[in-house]
Write a protein that binds this DNA or RNA. Structure first.
Ligand SMILES: [Mn+2]
Ligand SMILES: [Mn+2]
Ligand SMILES: [Mn+2]
Ligand SMILES: [Mn+2]
Lengths: 224, 224
DNA sequence: ATCTAAATTTAGCCTCGACTAAATTTATTT
DNA sequence: AAATAAATTTAGTCGAGGCTAAATTTAGAT
């Protein structure tokens, strides 16, 4: 067990590299710079440093982007686990709403101890998803597989349960909350417009017409 | 309302200057260096920078030590309030013991939002003392006056309630806990030895003979 | 195949906050 | 009043992690 003691900065780099490489391709300098809100030149510098460290965290080929080594991936999942457990816990025990937790968790994720992590995980009953429905990496740092489908792919007469809402913008989150579109909620698609891809969705007794910008961000599990 | 956004480092300096100047005299470079575990030369450098900042946080005279300005004092109390609320909250809601909380609070104190502070304060019922009995600065950043007396000044037949235990060493804290010497507990002094200043103290039905090293660290309120 | 635009890297610089070694000031003893 | 010791400050250096401006590579469009 190594205590690598990486900095806040390094942890954020690893976290965002993880997210950008989830679909398989390496993370580009520019994308990383945009996500981290750091200038591309600075990102190049940091990536080069990371790629040169003792236990290599990152695989880097000039002009080809970065990927994580297994060690780097574990470090990233550690931070992501912290983040998602913290969000869950802020909502459950301190009454935060789902649009408020991200910013707070963004800072706390870097400073809590492994002991703290264990305690909140236990207090919450080892949850598998955070308030937005994002999967929480397990204690041994494996990311569970997500088998949800985007709401945008459903068609009339299909019913489903909302599992995950992939949105960060607090305004959008509050809007979705006001429509009742939150994880755990059951919905039914009643209409589809091929022209604009709008879906008409029944939530409880309310009916909403949702555009692609929303339906691609909501992930559901079909009810057979 | 200014968001000064001071760094972790600056916050720790201010906090320790506050503590060292509580008895009236300025904090010396060396004392500060020892408390912060930073070399004296570095402390001089930081103090000089702090004394030169836009809203002055610190009063500094070469070779005469530092004191806090009202602004600096407020900043220090803000951090101390965070620390003590966090300790209280870690103990109450996550089952930490009083010898474990300090280290965790030491890191969290710098990253929680004012919103977080308000939420835990409210959830705890706006407590006035932390798990060690230290007074928690109020929401408007005033430090309540402490009117306790050291246990060492009591004499046989006097009874008192433990209010505060001024110890940081986890081993000592665990020892005191095992003796039942914790805030809120009632005690009675039955014997005093003028030779070694030992006090014999009755706690519940247990009798302990305590040396100066312990009795000067326990602060009580006399029962008239 | 060439030209251009976008992406990426290099080079040089900066601030923060620490450190060591050396100089200086203040305090204590003789 | 000196001499010595202790405390403090100065001077110079370092690593982390940013930034800008300029050079270079790669990718896209004729
Ligand atoms: Mn988040
Ligand atoms: Mn973060
Ligand atoms: Mn503490
Ligand atoms: Mn601290």
């Amino acid at each position: 067990m190594k205590k690598s003691a990486s900095t806040q900065s390094v942890q954020d780099y690893l976290k965002h590299i993880y997210e950008l490489t989830e679909k398989g391709s390496p993370a580009s300098t520019n994308d990383l710079a945009r996500e981290l809100d750091i200038k591309p030149a600075s990102v190049t510098g940091m990536i080069q440093k990371l790629a040169a460290e003792k236990p290599t965290l990152v695989e880097y080929q000039k002009h080809q982007g970065v990927t994580l080594t297994p060690t780097g991936k574990r470090a990233a999942l550690e931070v992501i686990r912290h983040h998602r457990l913290l969000e869950t816990w802020l909502v459950q025990t301190l009454g935060y709403s789902w649009d408020e937790v991200h910013e707070e968790a963004e800072r706390l994720e870097h400073v809590i101890s492994e002991d703290f992590e264990r305690r909140i995980a236990a207090a919450l009953g080892n949850p598998t998803r955070d308030p937005h429905g994002e999967l929480i990496p397990t204690a041994d740092l494996k990311m569970p597989v997500d088998d949800t489908t985007p709401l945008s792919s459903l068609r009339p007469s299909q019913s489903a349960t909302i599992q995950r809402v992939a949105a960060a913008d607090p305004n959008l989150l509050r809007h979705l909350d006001s429509l009742g579109l939150t994880p755990g909620i059951q919905i039914e698609v009643t209409e589809y417009s091929a022209f604009d891809n709008n879906l008409t969705v029944k939530v409880g007794r309310k009916i909403n017409v949702l555009g692609l910008n929303i339906t691609t961000k909501i992930f559901v599990e079909l009810i057979s």
